[in-house]
């Protein structure tokens, strides 16, 4: 994808936000595709990520007799890093790839050109509802992923580390006590949610921009889809570092 075109497209989407009411039907469909249809994957992956973190970190902590702090570590790691990151990867691989393939197919079959000829605003008609839907769905899925991940960590804490569940939960909740100085919300929560909003937006823009530039028939659509997922994941990883650094300071 051409980075300059991605930035241009993002600007075009911002300008057209007032059109969202007109696009509510497509917007609702995209919310369903990005949210409901991805929910089970996000929950399942989030649960197992929580268990993995709890197992790996918990076993190390138990060597030093610190296993009762596992709740705090799992909830912080899930809220700040793992849940936004893993949710973004799931969305890029499932929803972003579908967006790129759908728009790419429309492009190579001249449907995008047809919309252009009919004076239909392609950004407003196709891109805006997809971008806004994914941007909204991403933090919701992240929040649910934090919740099931912490729950998954609790299962390991009880079954493998010999902790009781209420102690684990109480320890996990202490992660919410660190209130930010600029934003009066728990740092762990808002830093993860802001990241997830940015990741959702970037994934949708990269996917739509790639799709709208597809060429060379079916082979080109395949190439476009691959590059959309690859570019989204690279951007998510790079942005994750910089946003993490910025939001924690």
């Amino acid at each position: 994808m051409n980075g300059g075109y991605g930035v241009f497209l993002a600007g075009q989407v911002f300008v057209r936000i007032p059109h969202l009411f007109r696009r509510r039907q497509t917007f609702k469909e995209q919310l369903f595709l990005g949210g409901i249809k991805t929910l089970h994957v996000s929950l399942l992956v989030g649960f197992f990520i929580g268990m993995i973190v709890s197992l790996q970190v918990g076993l190390e902590l138990s060597k030093y007799g610190q296993q009762e702090n596992i709740g705090l570590l799992v909830s912080i790691l899930m809220a700040r890093e793992m849940a936004p990151f893993v949710t973004a990867i799931i969305l890029a691989a499932s929803v972003g790839s579908a967006m790129a393939a759908e728009l790419g197919t429309m492009k190579v079959q001249e449907e995008i050109t047809a919309l252009d000829v009919l004076s239909v605003d392609v950004v407003s008609y196709l891109v805006l509802p997809r971008v806004i839907a994914l941007t909204l769905v991403s933090p919701i899925l992240t929040l649910l992923s934090v919740w099931v991940g912490t729950l998954g960590g609790g299962v390991i804490a009880v079954t493998q580390l010999g902790l009781d569940f209420s102690g684990y939960t109480h320890n996990a909740m202490t992660a919410l006590q660190d209130i930010g100085s600029t934003i009066p919300l728990p740092v762990s929560l808002y830093s993860g949610l802001i990241k997830s909003i940015v990741f959702g937006f970037v994934t949708a823009i990269v996917s739509c921009a790639s799709g709208l530039h597809a060429t060379n028939g079916a082979q080109g659509v395949g190439q476009t889809t691959r590059s959309a997922v690859r570019d989204s994941i690279i951007l998510i990883i790079v942005l994750n570092f910089f946003l993490g650094k910025f939001l924690l300071h």
Partner: peptide
């Protein structure tokens, strides 16, 4: 404009 393959929105 009539496109070669109609280009209807699927």
């Amino acid at each position: 404009y009539l496109f070669q393959h109609a280009a209807l929105i699927n």
